[in-house]
Nucleic acid binder design. Sequence first.
DNA 1: GCCAACGTTGGC
DNA 2: GCCAACGTTGGC
Length: 161
Amino acid sequence: MAAKYWLMKTEPETFSWQDLMQRPGRLESWDGVRNYQARNFMRDEFAEGQEVFIYHSSTAEPGIVGVARIARAAYPDPTALRPDSPYFDPKSAEAGKSRWVMVDVEAVASFATPITLQSLREHPKLQDMVLLQRGQRLSIQAVRPEEWKIICEMAKIIPVV
DNA sequence: GCCAACGTTGGC
DNA sequence: GCCAACGTTGGC
């Protein structure tokens, strides 16, 4: 099966790349996804070992800041059941079972210089990236292998293909 | 099942 | 803070 690549957005005010790098094992669970399409990607298409770009949004200079790998495939997100969680979901609680899933991600490589949204926009071969499409705001997106390669080269990282 | 109202995202 | 675009909700 062809390798699949992903992009996951996060607001650094909520959870940043730097936060991930400081975790034991540079590992953290990626909880709180509350969009069905994003959930379905994680649940149905994510597999351990796949690589993802981590993207910082809602910040002065939005862009891709590093590469992580999926350290654990999708499993139920218990924050949906906790009334004190910002990710609490009444319908999950009512059913007594979380309808949302999370994965574990592990940092693989930091970009020395983040690949800014602007530089992505300026690259002629990246115009079809999901991230760059008008109105696109899904927090988990597929990245085509050729796009992955170009961005790794922009970041001076040699991709393992 | 339609669709208006509302909430959220996220660049600028 | 603005606002376009999109997703969700809920009355009917």
